[in-house]
């Protein structure tokens, strides 16, 4: 499945790019992120607690930054295993471009998500909506953090 959205941000592209590479910003933006530590320049270890309705599972995994093209964008991908619940992974191709007025930045993203194991077997009806919702939350959190 693929999900696309975009945001207009009243900030210069360099600021947005910096934030996208700052683990503090990322940690506050990833929904349910409890731990995010950089283990190499482009690799972070993560612990995320995901609640969907009555389900509540802690995923442990990694966040990778790839296709880096400063300050125009990158691909941020995460994958984690949630024990008995299965595994989830997702990636967002993030593109930044200057707005026509030259002041602001357009952030657009394209998300792909996959789930495995019990969550796929029992929750298929919710996979797409949940992925969309989490992506939205991540970027809206990110935008809010930037506005602070």
């Amino acid at each position: 499945m693929e999900i696309k959205e975009s945001y207009d941000l009243p900030l210069p592209i360099e600021t947005v790019w910096q934030a996208l590479n700052d683990e503090g910003f990322l940690k506050n933006s990833i929904p349910g992120c409890e731990k995010l530590e950089r283990i190499s320049p482009n690799e972070l270890s993560a612990e995320v607690k995901l609640k969907i309705g009555p389900m509540s599972t802690r995923f442990k995994g990694k966040v990778n930054l790839s296709d880096l093209n400063p300050p125009n964008g990158y691909t941020i991908s995460g994958s984690g295993t949630g024990g008995i619940a299965g595994a989830a992974s997702g990636s967002a191709k993030v593109s930044l471009s200057k707005m026509e007025d030259g002041e602001g930045t357009i952030l657009s993203y394209q998300v792909k998500a996959e789930v495995k194991g019990k969550i796929a077997q029992l929750g298929s009806r919710l996979i797409h909506s949940t992925a969309k919702k989490l992506a939205k939350k991540f970027f809206s959190n990110f935008v809010q953090e930037l506005a602070k």
Binding site: V115, K116, A120, L122, S124
Partner: peptide, 8 residues
Amino acid sequence: NGQLLTAS
């Protein structure tokens, strides 16, 4: 990916 989405 070979996940069975109809498993209940």
